[in-house]
Amino acid sequence: MAITDADIAITWRVVNGSSLELLIPTLVSHKGVSPEGEAYVVAAGRNVEIAQRFFDWPDEVEEMATPPSVGVLRVGPGASDTRTIRVSRSLAAYHPFGGGFRGYPTLPSRPEDVVFCLGMTPEPYSPALGLEKDDNGVEFARHGRIAYEQQHRSCTEPVAL
Results as ranks from 00 to 15, higher is better:
L107G: 01
V138M: 13
P124L: 01
A9N: 13
T84C: 04
E21I: 00
R83A: 10
T106P: 08
T121F: 00
L161E: 02
S109H: 10
D5L: 06
T121M: 08
V72T: 09
R145E: 15
F116M: 11
F101Q: 04
S154P: 08
G119S: 03
R53Y: 01
P111S: 05
E112Y: 12
G119M: 03
V70Y: 04
C117N: 03
T11A: 09
G17M: 00
I3D: 12
Y40K: 04
F54A: 06
T4G: 10
E149W: 10
R145D: 15
E36P: 02
Q52D: 11
H152K: 10
E63P: 04
E21D: 09
P124I: 00
F97R: 00
N16I: 00
G103H: 03
A9I: 09
P58Y: 02
D59R: 12
D5G: 15
Q150V: 15
H143R: 07
E139K: 03
I85V: 14
G137Y: 07
L131A: 13
L107T: 04
Y104S: 14
G17I: 00
I50T: 02
M64K: 08
R46W: 07
L161G: 02
M64N: 14
V114E: 11
P58C: 01
Y148V: 09
A147P: 08
R89N: 08
D5E: 11
H95S: 11
P158S: 08
D7F: 10
H95Y: 12
G99Y: 01
V42E: 07
N47M: 05
R53A: 09
T26R: 15
L118M: 08
V14L: 02
F55A: 09
N136G: 11
A147Q: 10
V28W: 10
L27M: 04
D7H: 10
D81K: 14
R142T: 12
